[in-house]
């Protein structure tokens, strides 16, 4: 079955920082992959300079200053090819971090963090 957890980050102005504070649902047992799906772009580098730090529980999955472009859909690559594969067991675990906009997008926009998950 298709299983994703989606964390939505809404950006309204350039260089905005958004704090991420979420928890995995009780039926999610592990996280298998991460990728980003913004709601604008294509061939312009709207996310140049945008970074994401992400922690699951106490484990750092994406370090501070991690460039979003590396794992963000740009309209030409498939989600399977940009997905960052991980294998993290979770049990109502916290998901924390921060998204920092790089100042090159068209505002407002939405960045969705897709977590590929395994459910019970």
């Amino acid at each position: 079955m298709i299983n994703f957890k989606i964390i939505q980050v809404d950006i309204t102005k350039a260089n905005q920082k958004v704090i991420i504070n979420d928890t995995t649902e009780p039926d999610i047992t592990s996280i298998k992959g991460i990728f980003l799906f913004p709601n604008q772009s294509l061939n312009v580098r709207n996310y140049f300079g945008s970074t994401l730090r992400l922690l699951v529980g106490n484990r750092e999955v994406l370090p501070k200053n991690f460039d979003c472009e590396i794992i963000a859909d740009n309209g030409f690559k498939s989600w399977k090819s940009i997905k960052h594969n991980v294998d993290i067991s979770v049990d109502k675990s916290s998901i924390t971090g921060e998204y920092l906009d790089g100042g090159h997008a068209i505002y407002p926009y939405t960045m969705k963090i897709y977590l590929e998950v395994v459910k019970k």
Binding site: M1, I2, I6, F37, D73, G75, Y114
Partner: peptide, 9 residues
Amino acid sequence: VLNKHDLGM
């Protein structure tokens, strides 16, 4: 099966 899932994906 899908919940407000991005179509473009």
